[in-house]
Amino acid sequence: MRLLSFSSLLFFTALLVALLSAAKPPVSPEQWPNTLWIYSISLFLAIGGLILWHLHIRQHAKIIHSTDQPLLDLSDCLHQFLSEMQELAQELANLDHIGILARIESLLELHVWPLVNQHPALLNTLGITQSMQFFLKLAQCERLLNRVTSAASDGYLEEAHHTYSQALLIVEDMYYDFSKKPLLEKRKDQSDFTT
């Protein structure tokens, strides 16, 4: 935490000085302000602060990785999300458009948006590539749920059901890819799927 305070403070203070020295108008006929040397020094200091800041974030991510806590949370979140999606899949055919809208709204509110808000934490724990794949799938699922809402509002219940099934598939994928489900079990499921 100390490193974070120091690095960000160094970064912002140095950048403020750099900004101020960059703002000075050059004295004619010069092209550059005579504060250029202050600007250069502060820019180097800001780069130092920025490197320390990123180092701190990386260290913090490593600590979180070693405890595995957020992955456990993600696993739980995805399990609950999938359970509720499957539950709704059972009931969807019996719901009218108002009922569908209410249930989709609830899914978005309880599961999708809270996960979207975990962006920085998941970026730190999953890394750029994994978190990017996770959020792209989550966004795809959200868009499809939005489509379910639109279709249900317009009275196209068949389209709503069909689109919902696509969203459910994505959540299943996410659950297998990002939860802590043992790899063996995942492979077994996948071989079940292909036979």
Binding site: A89, Q90, L92, A93, H161, H162, Y164, S165, Q166, L168, L169, E172, D192, F193, T194, T195
Partner: peptide, 13 residues
């Protein structure tokens, strides 16, 4: 989808 049979009525993958 191989799992489509397990999905309820009206939901076909």
């Amino acid at each position: 989808h191989p799992d489509s049979s397990s999905h309820p009525q009206g939901i076909q993958h």
